[in-house]
């Protein structure tokens, strides 16, 4: 009974479309609620909270790291920069999927954004993979358009929602810079 009840109340977090260059700027992360199982979010500089992302790009580097416990570290390049994607022993399925993919392929990644502060005070934003699958070039082009559209939607709604007010205050975002990033990303796609 309890399971059914909680299953009905559970709403899956959407996977936000975000370019590498915007994800790299993320610093604000928080938990919604005090429950142990409350979802954690990062705040995108363009003003949407985000618990999961969906990105596409070229897998330019695939490395197996660690000694006792191995994990995959993968770099995925989109038109604006690089996503640092990891899959460890808690992401067995993603590890197996990455193992089958050749370096240089286009991939689609679903995962959780992770913000870590390093000892030297710098901040590193990575993606903890839920799934990584090879895709064709057309899917990559569709994703670039999709991410462009949703980033522009966020820019258009900037300072009109409580979350984007918060983002504006925290990041002091200049929406124009993100608009230019989108324009440059779109120009890399030949059609």
């Amino acid at each position: 009974m309890t399971d059914q009840y909680s299953a009905r109340r559970y709403v899956r977090e959407p996977a936000r479309r975000v370019y590498a260059n915007e994800l790299r700027e993320v610093r604000l992360h928080f938990k919604d609620g005090t429950d142990e199982k409350s979802p954690t979010y990062v705040m995108l500089p363009t003003g949407v909270r985000c618990n999961r992302i969906f990105v596409c790009g070229e897998m330019i580097l695939k490395e197996k790291k660690g000694e006792d416990t191995t994990f995959y570290s993968v770099r995925v390049r989109d038109p604006t920069g690089i996503f640092f994607v990891n899959a460890g022993s808690y992401q067995q399925e993603a590890m197996q999927q990455i193992a089958r993919i050749e370096q240089g392929s286009f991939v689609a990644v679903v995962g959780k954004p992770v913000v870590r502060s390093m000892e030297d005070g710098s901040v590193f934003v990575s993606v903890r993979a839920e799934s990584v699958f090879p895709v064709d070039r057309d899917t990559y082009r569709l994703w670039v358009d999709d991410a462009a559209e949703q980033t522009l939607d966020r820019i258009d709604a900037f300072r009109t929602t409580p979350d984007s007010e918060k983002a504006a205050e925290f990041y002091n975002t200049n929406p124009e810079i993100y608009r230019q990033m989108v324009a440059a990303a779109l120009r890399t796609i030949e059609f």
């Binding site: 522009l152 989108v182 324009a183 779109l186």
Partner: peptide
Amino acid sequence: RHAGLINRAG
């Protein structure tokens, strides 16, 4: 759609 997005972003 792609051309429309270029216009919108530009």
